[in-house]
Design a protein around this nucleic acid. Structure first.
Lengths: 220, 220
DNA sequence: TCTTTTTTTCACACAAAGTTCATAATTATA
DNA sequence: TATAATTATGAACTTTGTGTGAAAAAAAGA
């Protein structure tokens, strides 16, 4: 498990690091949001501990930036209680929250809890007004349900599970139709066509990757 | 699922509400214990999120009052950790406990956990004029009792416990007939047909999810 | 037992979805 | 710009899944 600590105070970083190392986490550090983003590009971070008050790029900006591209669980550290309200107002997907001063033990406990929770599969995919409900098996755009066929739903699900990844037609065939299926590659084109039509204003989320296949692209 | 939030702080209510709505809970609010009791009399609440510190009727009194008549799972919100001990002293059936500040995500996760754990079956299901009485084993529409067969009642019960969830025929077979039963999938279709007929004007609550099975859909 | 109710199976009709293919449109590259 | 390769699209066709009625089988009641 890779843990990233984003805090401008070295002492805090050191303390957290010591406890985290003790729990066999691999620990990365960043003094500010800009540094943190760099680390995230380079390493597959599993969980972030973020101090909300920082010089350079502050916690809020960093967090917003982070959520555009990644969905890494994040625990927020803050000095004051009233900042919590501010965070809530942001409607951000904070996973947990601690006010300073906090006990490192508690922080570690929360980290564990967040990771445990994170293992659960999400029930829904949200992107702007597009909501894919995997439990209810429905798709809504602007709160209006749209109808897609079973195959289209499966393909979209596969795309959502592989955002920003170029996927070959063969891969799609293998995944959705199974390895024992031998049909025409072009069939997928037709399904993509229908799916795009049904996605309406979100049709462009499905990009064509010439020579390869398709890609479900969520822009940052 | 009907969620009741009892908290005197509007902001907190709003935040919880937003997250809960997103999870398809129907949300009711109360500013204090007295209001909360009123809501409970009128609506079949499935789970309560209760702030222990409130003006007017405080959380403790409300909770005791609540437990006299109802057995609705309750998650307690509290400002301080040591208040938990006080609650324990009451020997009350608290289902879970969170200290402020908490993350909305965690709260939602705990709500789900409590509901899952409890599978807490209420005595009645109400939707408009449709009433399913699990104790009396009767169904009424517009105050008129309708007759369904035992299998149909079981299926409807299963649906009510899994609202807005697409359920496969296989799942229904396993749940209602048991895992050791090996019959024709299409038998379910026939039961659904009969159930729909019996539900009259509510027949459309049972939606067909093509390629999957069926879904009991209650719009929030 | 006989009768009634409930459950299950089945076949047919129909609607929905999936597939194929010819042609148009687009893109890459010489 | 011309050519080749690839993808998009519309339409015909095939396959699959569901609703339904009827009837057989099983279970429950009288």
């Amino acid at each position: 498990m890779n843990l990233l600590i984003v805090d401008d105070e070295k002492l805090i970083r050191e303390v957290i690091k010591e406890y985290a190392l003790n729990e066999n986490y691999k620990v990365y550090e960043a003094e500010n949001g800009i540094e943190a983003l760099k680390v995230i590009e380079e390493v597959n971070i599993d969980i972030i501990v973020l101090d909300i008050m920082m010089p350079k790029m502050d916690g809020y900006s960093f967090f917003q930036e982070l959520k555009k591209e990644h969905n890494i669980p994040t625990i927020i550290l803050s000095a004051r209680n009233d900042e919590y309200d501010k965070l809530l107002g942001f409607e951000l997907g904070v996973d947990d929250y601690l006010t300073k001063p906090f006990s490192p033990k508690e922080l570690i406990a929360r980290i564990k809890a967040v990771i445990r929770r994170g293992k659960h599969i999400e029930n829904k995919f949200n992107y702007e007004t597009l909501v894919v409900d995997f439990i209810g098996h429905t798709i809504t755009i602007d709160n209006k349900e749209i109808n897609v066929t079973p195959k289209e739903f499966e393909i979209l699900t596969y795309f959502i599970q592989n955002q920003n990844v170029a996927i070959s037609r063969e891969a799609i065939l293998n995944k959705i139709w199974g390895y024992d299926y031998f049909g025409d590659d072009r069939t997928i084109d037709t399904h993509i066509k229908m799916l795009r039509n049904n996605l309406g204003k979100y049709r462009d989320l499905i990009k064509t990757v010439r020579g390869i296949g398709y890609k479900f692209e969520i822009k940052k």
